[in-house]
Nucleic acid binder design. Structure first.
Lengths: 235, 235
DNA sequence: GTAGCGGTATGGTCGGACCACACACAAGTT
DNA sequence: AACTTGTGTGTGGTCCGACCATACCGCTAC
């Protein structure tokens, strides 16, 4: 097919395909440094701007990270960070009304039920300690902001204990994407200390269920926890 | 010069924040046209390249679409397309080993069980017809490629019937991200017609369960279907 | 009325230049 | 010898100005 008729090369896409190809074949692996932008441009016969646009896309997709300088960490490096990228995409589409908040709640329930059931079976002692640490942190007299961070840490620890990296990343991403929404709602909450106490208690129950390896109970508890949390705030 | 100390403005990020801000406040909604790149650059005191990089990121995140010309559809328009964006990110990270294929299988099972149970309750007559159309398409003597497309259509129809847009997009994204993997494995499959027949039969069973509004059965069937499919091919 | 054709606005691309940063290394100082 | 200082170099970050490709708009000529 030497057909050039209707084809529109789209230089930056060509660069993108080239780099993605190297990543797919494993020629460039996490930790590796890409060639300097100028060199890559010369290799591909493209302008530096085209290369930059392609790299910027990959950066937004959480695959690479760029840094100036000459040191070991400088330049453009392959550094996978799926959660951040997914979180930004989800948050953005949430803002643009690609899907309603209720759908996000349902998705959270689905993801965290899944994680809870698996975590109850697979959680190590270290996992339980990580969760406990987050719970202890929440015992202080925190405002919504810090409390929310600790809350995220707790839920992420559960997802981590489940052992499914993709589900883990999705959990983080979705929790991040609704962070702003939940924070805003929490601030408007009348009796914050009371709400906080309730959340604490629910967390402790979940932790106990996971410690006891009771997957179904943990899943039910976490579902109720999420629904109540979103419900109290959103609706 | 108020303060230039530690801050690193990162021009393109500034542009990005500005545009995202407009999108978040709803000032720019789906269907709206953004100002021309040159104008946006002038407004923000940035170069056109910086603007382009920011827009390229948003395009990769599936929020906007650009087109040359002067017509109604020309210019840069807000057009949310989450599935494509999510699919690309997931496929990319799958390629870079951010997570193993087995995790994707588990995630698919989780998502599609969820969809199946909801779809059994909510599916309309039209939904069932859409599914049936995909099944009829698969009855032809198709190769892996076309069969795969129809298979996607069937599964997407189920997700659509469930009514959760986010889960729907995630389902599409994940199915897309493993498309290449499954296709490659299907081609290496020894007895393709036999496998195809089995898949057809399983699809019909699922469809019947959904028609009968039997959510749990449908979920179990689809789980077995996915596990067997991935299992026969992957391991 | 219709066909043709230039005008115009838009994104796409390029080349070149300069800036900001961070390290490497040599020279100078104590 | 150890430390400080300055200079060089490679990297991404930014900008400018120009030109190309595309697709519509509107005028002109038949």
């Amino acid at each position: 097919m030497t057909d050039t008729r209707r084809a529109r090369p789209a230089t930056y896409e060509m660069v993108l395909e080239h780099v993605v190809g190297r990543l797919t074949t494993g020629e460039w692996r996490p930790g590796d440094r890409l060639p300097p932008e100028r060199e890559l441009a010369a290799q591909l016969g493209a302008s530096r701007q085209a290369v930059r646009e392609a790299l910027r896309v990959l950066q937004a997709q959480g695959v690479i990270r760029s840094q100036v300088g000459t040191g070991a960490d400088s330049g453009t490096v392959v550094v996978p960070a799926p959660a951040r990228a997914l979180g930004r995409v989800l948050a953005l589409h949430l803002a643009v009304d690609s899907f309603p908040v209720d759908d996000v709640t349902e998705a959270r329930v689905m993801l965290e039920r899944f994680s809870a059931e698996l975590a109850a079976r697979r959680r190590s002692a270290a996992d339980l300690l990580t969760m406990a640490a987050a719970l202890d942190e929440m015992d202080a007299d925190l405002g919504p902001e810090e409390f929310s961070d600790a809350d995220i840490a707790f839920h992420v620890a559960i997802a981590g204990a489940a052992g499914n990296r993709l589900v883990n990343e999705l959990t983080v991403a979705i929790r991040e994407s609704v962070r702003g929404f939940l924070l805003g709602a929490m601030r408007e909450q009348g009796d914050w200390p009371a709400l906080r106490d309730r959340l604490r208690a629910e967390h402790r129950e979940i932790h106990a269920a996971l410690s006891g390896a009771d997957g179904v109970v943990a899943a039910d508890l976490i579902e109720a926890h999420i629904r109540a949390f979103h419900g109290r705030l959103g609706g």
